[in-house]
Design a protein around this nucleic acid. Sequence first.
RNA 1: GCGCUCGUAGCUCAGUUGGAUAGAGCAUCGCUUUCCUAAAGCGAAGGUCGCAGGUUCGAAUCCUGCCGGGCGCGCCA
Length: 618
Amino acid sequence: MVQFVIVRVYMSLNIQQHICDSLKTAFGSVLNIDPNEIDPVIRRAQNPEIADFQANGAMGLGKKYGHNPIELAEKIVSVVDFGTFADKPEVAGPGFINIRINNETITKLVEEMDCENLGVEPDKDTHAIAIDLCGVNVAKQLHVGHLRSTIIGDSIARMYERVGRTVYRENHLGDWGLPIAMVLEQLLSSETNLDTLELDDLNAAYKNAQLVAKDELRGEKAAKKLQSGPHRFIEIEEQNASALGAQAAAKTVLNALQRGDKKLLANWQKLIDCTMEAVYASLDLLNVKVGPENNRGESFYRDRLGGVVESFVSSGLGIEDDGAIVVRFKNRERPMLIQKSDGGFLYATTDLAAVRFRTNELGADRVIYVVDARQRDHFKDLFDATALISWNQTPDGTGAELVHVPFGSVLGDDNKPLKTRSGSNVTLDSLLHEAVERGTTEVIKRSKEPNSPTSKMCDAELKTIGRQIGIGAIKYADLSNDLIRDYVFDMNRMVAFEGNTGPYIQYACARISSLIRKGGERVGAKLVIEEPQERVLALKLLQYNNVLHDSIKYLEPHRLCTWLYELTDAFSAFYQLCPVLKLDDELTKQSRLRLSDLTRRVIVDGLDMLGIESPEQM
RNA sequence: GCGCUCGUAGCUCAGUUGGAUAGAGCAUCGCUUUCCUAAAGCGAAGGUCGCAGGUUCGAAUCCUGCCGGGCGCGCCA
């Protein structure tokens, strides 16, 4: 019983935390101040030859409390008690404290990590998380723009779920409003059969509707800009007469929809079904956990929009301006429009309704918007408006944090936003199929090698693996960069089995699987950490929990990617220099097999949070 | 015009939120190597961290001003 308690306490400690606490105590006693106010600035040491961790706090604290930093560091070193974790640290340079963890501790910690949850601590916060992702528009095919929002959002969701949070993936469909009404009007007036509707027909109608809308807008703007006299205005109106006619017809349709016209609503639903059927197929191929259950689009909020505006108006935050209702902010000129002068609502209105739903009804204390960086201003307005009206809290009064995760564009090799040769948007589907094809080509090529484990596989098996590699390649390439940056879509680099790529990590993982198949699992074998490569690998593994929580904290999946790549590298060095299968020393052999298997499970788990599958052979 | 954002090796990118001599992978050039292993390995070269100031014991990182690229700016989403 006693032992059980000790084990529990030990497990809840991670190395870095333990070092930090010990040093806080040491600094506190030497400087005679409250240890809790001290930050010893613990970092992983850059050079493993020198140390495992370093404490950089002596410099700053020495300065602050009038001590020579080197002398302070030496005093700290002489009094600090790391218990069994580490031996006496060393002082270097201007006051760095270098700490080396002893092998017994590393061994013990790795053994503790080697359990079902792989040392990942659950999040203490138990509120839900809402993630706005994908953002598909009805009547519109998914294109590259949706790729990033979907896979980044899904990855963040998976990371949160991994630490025990409930996540609502919110697919905020563009399924309501004038654009959809225009498409519907066009299809109805051309007497298209909605039951045999194809997505291509819808797309064409959507594009056409957008052109018409743009024409009207351009005409109005041109007229205003030129300060045109009445005759000039009439001229433009004549030019856009048909456009305006279409607009008027669409508005009629929209009105009928909003009134709840049953027949029209049924037809509207057909547009959605037609669109979503194709969308789900793409999302499925992309291996993301987004399906019909995640749909909560603009139409879901349609009856709440009036209330949103009313709330703002009655609290004095929404004021009338030129016939429209706007919300103004103290520190900037730009207002946020929440109601048009014709009484119509805007996307800002819907987003406000969605915020309130997510915080108040879903109980999310973090609402995350994975949306293109170009919408930064919109989200700044949205979040500030939310704060003004105090909708940024859950029902239990917990403050809800609204975060925009902005991401850059996918570029073609001309460094411009990715387009097809004819200049149109690249559909997600074509991109994914190209990736699958490239992945499959790689797998088939490798299966021709007689000593490859895939050499006896049938076509269907090879195709499955090819899909896993191709999709993994583009997802990893996307997630492994700092999100804010644009990146050039280069399939050759993405599917390469060398370098910081998805396939490289998958391959390394498959090879460990192969090793385990030959050597057998060694659950519970005694670990022996002695060789430098074993030590480096073990220390790397022990960072898993911290890296994951940092990736979540900063909403940066590329941290996890970088670390997985480093882990894979550490394993390669280990596998290169530490024999396993041919060892006669059964103890070391079992230990190494266990270390390998733990590495494999961590890689599989890590890749899973990126939405990437880990084939056992490839 | 105003605002946001990015700028790191030839190329593609990291850089642990202010720490030691700025790191990887491709590509280049050398040298080893036929092995328990489904991957060859090791090394070299390559940098004014866009530029100039400032803060600091200490700056790629924070502040200011420039330069260059991208993006956004009232009734579209």
